[in-house]
Design a protein around this nucleic acid. Structure first.
Lengths: 185, 185
DNA sequence: TGTAGCATGTAAGCCGTTACATGATTGA
DNA sequence: TCAATCATGTAACGGCTTACATGCTACA
């Protein structure tokens, strides 16, 4: 079907997916899409930079997976995007016919702990404590997202993902605490 | 100090760190380094491609953070690398004076679950079950690494990281099982 | 004799970031 | 009126992968 749109990156599909949750009629701006990515996507996928969102939206628009509505205001054009029928089909087809890769993790804290013998013992502990605080902050943010999702049928899957994320942060916190305890001898 | 070697990527430091664990006198080849990265590094940092290891080693050699020993054999030169004094200092300095970033996760399974309403219920469950099997395989690999590390003082930190990784896989498995159960209603 | 594993590298290209540049609107 | 936020984009570049290309060594 889509001769134009072959080989999208996973991030493109993620943006299509986000657009698919949009309930407004006139679509969202790139700026708004970035906000939504920062709000939810960043917990399990890296939230793309503004510049990437704009270029991605341009590409998706070219492939007619999203529809663009331009509104002129002064010297600037404000563009709003929404998913097209083709976009929905392409997204569903991707979900149905391809297998997900194994998650990719880049864990600088674990990497540094691996070389803990090169650090001062206090510095190792301080690093782990700092990480724990960051985990708590993230968890609080995600908790808020979870609360907003409620238990409605429409938000069932996002809620499952949020619960998964909360459990991940909890287990990570526990592992960090165990490591700190083990380092105390 | 190192006017030559400014701004290394975290992956460069990861490779320096791996070289730092090398106990042989004559150093390791790029090929061997790749094998070691595949063996341990991949659990908390993406294991770089062969080509990247070679180019990284060239760069590190140029900055004199690693020393290169060429051995000619027929038409080919085989190169062995080991950490220099400057390399050790640079690595320690990096650990002491910079803060680790928050871990970056790209989780295609969670991303797809987010759009679970676009999939057949059986497909969602099958995806999660496949992921669970992959987790079990990874866990088994890491378990072997953990066993090899033992409880010697010299491998204390790698062992802590391996334990952390095992706990991560366990918690991820549990989360997947809970999700499958929740989907069953 | 051939194939699997050891070993090294170049080239092309994608994905994504940072830095730069511009301008409109809202509220303190 | 000034700062923050909304809003859009380009350019340069880094990191990393895939594809391609080459050759040695051990062993079945």
């Amino acid at each position: 079907m889509s001769l134009v749109s072959q080989a999208l990156s996973t991030t493109s599909y993620a943006l299509l997916g986000l657009l698919g949750f949009d309930d407004s009629d006139d679509g969202v701006t790139g700026y708004q899409l970035k906000q939504r990515a920062d709000f939810t996507l960043r917990f399990y996928w890296s939230s793309p930079a503004m510049s990437q969102i704009y270029s991605e939206l341009g590409r998706l628009s070219g492939a007619e997976l999203v529809a663009e509505t331009s509104v002129r205001s002064g010297h600037r054009t404000s563009r709003r995007y929404r998913l097209t029928e083709l976009g929905v089909e392409t997204l569903n087809e991707w979900l149905a016919s391809t297998e997900p890769d194994f998650p990719a993790l880049k864990h600088p804290v674990a990497l540094r702990l691996l070389m803990g013998h090169r650090m001062q013992p206090e510095d190792v502990t301080r690093m782990l404590q700092t990480y724990e605080r960051q985990l708590a902050d993230r968890r609080a943010d995600l908790e808020q997202v979870r609360a907003m999702l409620g238990d409605a049928e429409a938000t069932r899957f996002p809620a499952l993902v949020a619960d998964w994320g909360l459990a991940y942060y909890d287990s990570e916190s526990a592992a960090v605490q165990r490591t700190i305890a083990a380092l105390d001898d």
